[in-house]
Design a binder for these strands. Structure first.
Lengths: 356, 356
DNA sequence: ACACGGATTGCAAACGTTTGCGAAGCGGCT
DNA sequence: AGCCGCTTCGCAAACGTTTGCAATCCGTGT
């Protein structure tokens, strides 16, 4: 074991004081004389005293940890989400002296089992949960167990008394549609996923709501989907969309990774972006800036969001039983080169059809 | 506080046994009767008992944590390093039941101070350190304090008895040179950083060694550098290289971020890659695949490396005082479109000059 | 002289484990 | 009957804190 650092007992003996007084002096308790406090703090500094946090936790019941369960990921991914998220979370927690507990999930265990262990063993005071599924057993457990937690993302049930921060991607998808509609597009494609994540639902809903608001019967929307991390299936779905009978002039990816794939398949099919096809994504991953002609997308502000999530969690842990906290952050549109006016021919066709 | 989960005391009372026996039964101690052990495990399962780890740590002296200090980062970066690294680390630690402690550094504190606190407070049994500087105070502290730790990267002093895993980027840079030389390139540029990180040194050295091995006086190398996260300075340095009197035909970036910037500035200067200029990077960040014509680079295998680092750290913590562990992983070349034969004109000029 | 009150300090319990050592029970042997 | 040894279990200390309560000291007012 690492050579133990100085303890209260050592300090107390050296100062000829009781452990109690030393403890109180360091805690800034006003009942200890100013002179004594000075002696104690001086000695503590000299001895390099740092309190043992396990011991403190045992009596205080607080661990000073916020937990995050490390998602199990496929072999590879074009995604800086995790790094940005954890960086932000760290920023949000740092100011309150809270550390981050990253619990990896062993191959044979479920994410819920890991979460349970972290909580029941008293390792963490609060939890942050990302990638919310429509039926999320983790959320169910945390609520029942009355553990302070904050979700990155929302539940479908808006009335549930839970704390969350979400990027308003529904509205963003609506904005994307409006922008593309103004540019003359009428035939839309959406590349989605089959996984039952709430964000899929919210984004599709946002898009459909915007379409409905417009009230233009000429607007068409074709939705294709593939399992989240199944690249081959996504390629097949996108190719189906691009080579279908009524190829859309504008395709929206549920997130950048899919939109980038659309860019790739479009190039492969000889389609020029944005001349023949407009493409819009969501997230603003780094690669979006590099893929020609530059992917138009929305910045999810992951890092900033995570920072706020950290702060929310801290305040949740401090005053238990308070009202749940909610926060909707507005994603920033990032206009690059992958969107443009609908192809002339299409516009002509449309006009032709709309006045027969 | 979170409602406490069941304790040994509760179990003991319920089973009419002593705490000692219950503890031993759950630990699989053979001195408890088989029948008793069964009763205990059954009750433990029924009560959902999970041992309090703070209490266990207090007596065992082990926290079950590996610590990683969250680097403070600039406002943005094209980098998936952190996410991949932590994912891999999690994988390496998970099988041994070790959790990851991510310590964020408060704005007014140094990274070393955070590390000190984590260690002295007994929060972690071991540490992993990345981004090794030539003079690294963190490493100095950990060695002196005899804390088990593993570095991602190396010290310049090869003889120091410390554990590390590093990607052999020096050799990779040599390979890059050899490949480009075979393609006819003779005038090389290296875009480096001014920060005194050991990997800068190793990569430059690897490149220079390969040049020396070749023993061709016609080979030229111009090195430019900028502070690590200063994009404007990097742009200026690269532009200087590209518009200098003896523009290189091949430019190597110390890492992908710089190589991608070279691609950008080359396009800006009207240079075609790889026709007029070859560019090679290192790391294989996701964006490298998207930036046209595809950045030729080396895969740093971050995730796999991190997994091994996790395993190394675990074995280091288990048997203290063992020999330091070292591991050099060979980076995979990823050949894409950004390298090619040296421009014809250049080759002609070279031939002309070499036989006057 | 005595009581009182405020300032300062210490005692001891508690948090939930692990573990060295001793005790009890019991069967078999002499 | 007495002893031994094995199996099974419990007592109590220890890990390093925090904290309610009591103790001490000292000065002041009556």
């Amino acid at each position: 074991m690492v050579q133990r650092s100085s303890t209260l007992k050592v300090l107390a003996e050296h100062l000829d004081l009781s452990i109690t007084t030393v403890s109180r002096a360091l805690a800034g308790n006003p009942s200890v004389a100013a002179r004594t406090r000075e002696r104690v703090t001086a000695a503590a500094r000299e001895f390099g005293y740092v309190p043992n946090l396990a011991a403190r936790q045992l009596v205080s019941g607080r661990s000073g940890f916020a937990a995050f369960v490390l998602p199990v990921r496929g072999p590879s991914y074009v995604d800086s989400y995790l790094g940005e998220f954890l960086t932000g979370l760290g920023e949000g927690l740092a100011t309150h002296g809270v550390d981050l507990l990253l619990a990896p999930v062993q191959p044979d265990r479920s994410e819920l089992a890991v979460l349970r262990h972290v909580i029941e063993s008293g390792r963490a005071d609060g939890v942050v949960v990302a990638r919310i599924a429509e039926e999320d057993e983790r959320v169910g457990y945390l609520r029942e167990r009355r553990v302070p937690f904050v979700m990155h993302g929302r539940l479908l049930d808006e009335t549930a008394p839970v704390s969350w921060l979400d990027t308003d991607s529904g509205t963003a998808f609506g904005e994307a549609f409006d922008m593309l509609y103004e540019l003359g597009h009428r035939r839309f494609g959406l590349v989605s996923i089959t996984d039952r994540m709430t964000f899929r639902h919210l984004r599709e809903r946002g898009l459909r709501a915007a379409i409905a608001r417009r009230g233009d019967q000429a607007v068409e929307l074709e939705v294709v989907a593939a399992p989240r991390f199944d690249r081959a299936a996504a390629v097949a779905a996108i190719d189906g969309l691009l080579h279908g009978p009524r190829r859309p002039t504008a395709v929206i990816g549920l997130f950048d990774e899919l939109a980038l794939l659309v860019l790739e398949r479009a190039a492969h099919a000889g389609l020029r972006v944005p001349h023949d096809l407009s493409v819009v994504g969501f997230d603003n991953v780094p690669a979006a800036a590099y893929a020609p002609p530059g992917l138009t997308t929305f910045d999810a502000c992951t890092r900033r969001s995570a920072k706020e999530i950290g702060e929310m969690l801290v305040s949740l842990v401090e005053d238990r039983g308070g009202e749940p906290l909610r926060r909707l952050v507005r994603p920033e549109p990032v206009l690059r080169g992958s969107h443009g006016p609908a192809p002339r021919s299409e516009r002509a066709v449309r006009r032709g059809r709309s006045k027969p």
